[in-house]
Simulated scan of single mutants.
Amino acid sequence: MTDQRGDRPNPVTQHARPDFPSQDQPHPGWTGPMDPPPDHGEESYRGSGRLDGRRTVITGGDSGIGRAVAIAFAREGADVLFTHLDEEEDDARETARLVEEAGRKAIPVSCDIRDEDNCRSLIERAVAEFGHVDVLVNNAAYQMSQPDGIEAISTEQFDRVMRTNLYGMFWLTKFALPHIPAGGCVINSTSVQAYKPSPHLLDYAMTKGAIVTFTQGLAQMVAERGIRVNAVAPGPVWTPLIPSTMPDTAEFGKQSPLGRPAQPAELAPAYVYLASPQASFITAEILNATGGTPLP
């Protein structure tokens, strides 16, 4: 729906609003069965050369925010190496097709970033393919809703959340930094959960708070090298992670002041901006994209 005074999309009604059909998927979830289907910017994103020639690495690039960022980066002129899990091969193939359709190089890599050797090998692959890394986007994450409280969070779940969301980010950044030249950057995906944790996502929220601290501390550490480090903090976003980890998706996103979840396409421009030369004086910042939820 547009404003009567011109082509001005109303953010309240621009994308699908709850109530959504009830739906459930096993983890890690897939794009195809989702209703409504997520919008990754396939039809809407228009590039303007802001990332011409950049070599980029995106974790979790097969679907959701990662796919939207891969599409946007490619249409801005960047080559993209992105990770996915074995079970996500079909979604990864579609992301690669969209990147290549934009005329850029797409390198999908099956990689479980919970393993240090896998993270080292991933960066080695990126350097072998590209020569260096201009932009590292630490986006892959795991969550599992536990409405029964901390007693229901098993050590296995806790370990998986920590190793995916924190260990993988730490290792990939550590291995990538020697190959990021001045003018390059790291962009991390944190969350509104870092500031306003939902009790049923306690362990996930813990990691997102840690990502804020990691981002701000690392930014100061590498500033003198000319490397910027920032993060994006989304609110609710309609991705396969939701039907595969949440018990009830019908009202997902209704709690945001805009009354709906974001579509992945609405997050991608934030990552493009932080990766671009236009953000050259922006580092140690958290770009909040919460649909109106105030954050500190």
Rank of each mutant, 00 (worst) to 15 (best):
S198Q: 14
P178M: 01
P197A: 09
P178I: 05
S191E: 06
L177P: 07
P178T: 02
V192W: 00
L177C: 07
L177N: 02
A182H: 02
A194H: 04
A182N: 03
F175M: 01
P178F: 04
H200L: 08
A182D: 11
M169W: 03
V186T: 07
H200K: 09
K174E: 12
Y204N: 04
I180V: 15
N165V: 12
S198F: 12
K196T: 13
M206A: 14
Y195H: 12
W171P: 00
G183F: 04
I180S: 03
G168C: 09
G168Y: 04
V192E: 14
A176S: 15
N165L: 10
P181G: 01
H179C: 01
F170L: 14
L202H: 02
P178Q: 00
S189M: 13
T190K: 02
Y167C: 10
S191G: 10
N165G: 12
P178Y: 05
G168T: 05
M206V: 15
L201S: 02
Y195D: 08
G184I: 06
K196N: 13
H200N: 12
N165C: 12
V186W: 09
D203R: 03
P197R: 00
L202T: 13
L172Q: 08
K174A: 10
N188F: 05
G183W: 05
L177S: 04
L172R: 01
I180T: 10
I187D: 07
W171V: 11
A205T: 08
A176F: 11
N188V: 06
A205C: 11
D203Y: 09
L166K: 04
C185E: 08
I187V: 15
L202Y: 05
Y204C: 08
K196F: 10
L202M: 11
T190N: 02
L172P: 02
L166R: 05
L201H: 02
T190H: 01
N188K: 08
T173K: 07
V192R: 10
G184R: 00
K174F: 11
M206C: 14
L166W: 04
L202Q: 03
Q193M: 15
Y195N: 06
H200R: 08
P178V: 02
G168P: 05
A205H: 06
T190F: 02
G168L: 07
Y195E: 11
F175V: 05
P199W: 13
S189I: 11
A194T: 07
K196P: 00
T207C: 15
F170H: 13
H179E: 07
Y204F: 15
P197Y: 03
T173V: 10
F170D: 00
S189D: 03
K174S: 11
